[in-house]
Amino acid sequence: MSTLSRTPRLLGRPTRGRIGRWVFNTALVLAGVIMLSPVAWVFINSIEPEKDQFVLPPVWLPHTLTLFSYKQLFQQIPFLLQLGNSLIISAAVVIGSTIVSVLAAYAFARMEFPGKNVLFVILLSGLMLPTQIAAVPEFVEVKYLGLLNTRLSLIIPALIQVFGIFLLRQHFKTIPRELEDAARIDGAGELQILRRVIVPLSWPALSATAIITTQYIWNDFFWPNLYITDPHKMVAALGLVTLQNSFLGGPVAGVFAGLSVLAIPVVVLFVLLQRQLMEGFGYAGVSR
């Protein structure tokens, strides 16, 4: 009796599961297409002749391939120089802010000092508020420091990355305290503990913060637009906007080429460090 009534259910369940999976996967693929098609559109436009650009519906399979857009890009603005600026600034910020974040995160995670919790809440509020709120006061600061129109104006204020401090602090808190005690007994001072024990155990979290920071600084337009007016000191993201503006906002072939070039380093970095990135986020939430 029970066997009879159970058999159809046993047969039915996998079928229902399979249909559910199909629906789910199809939805995922659709979402992927919707998200990726603008990126594909930018890239395809960058290798199409100007007359095919901005055509609706888009020409997905170009009849002729041309590097005209790229030529225009490099002729009209000092784009190579601006890419170099982006590279220097991103590298400086990533290295500098990681050092600052490690030190700050260690203090917040492990040291006892008066006002620690209040200070941490203030720091976190920096994560909640939109950065634009700080635009005016920070502009005044940078101006009085005499840093307007210098690359340093994009480096120094960016050395404090609140998200990085937060992520690393969470990770440091998961490292067993006994390891620090052992290192202390073994003869290590605070900085040696940090360098020899904490940092080597934190590579995934460090990679995650480094990638997030790189991506943020590389793509940032807001702060460069505020501080830099000299085209030779501009970063690539800002340079592209000036390229568009020089044509009074009209369609410009070079912009597509510029966007394509700008995307490459971030994509490459992400692909290379994808695993560490995922692990890093895993670390932040799960105590081990």
């Binding site: 067993p176 006994e178 052992a182 202390r184 007994i185 003869g187 001072g189």
Partner: peptide, 17 residues
């Protein structure tokens, strides 16, 4: 400080790096 006491210690969970 612990560092300067010239002592060695074995921990319950070993605390190996």
């Amino acid at each position: 400080s612990a560092k300067e006491r010239d002592i060695a210690m074995v921990f319950q969970n070993y605390a190996l790096y």
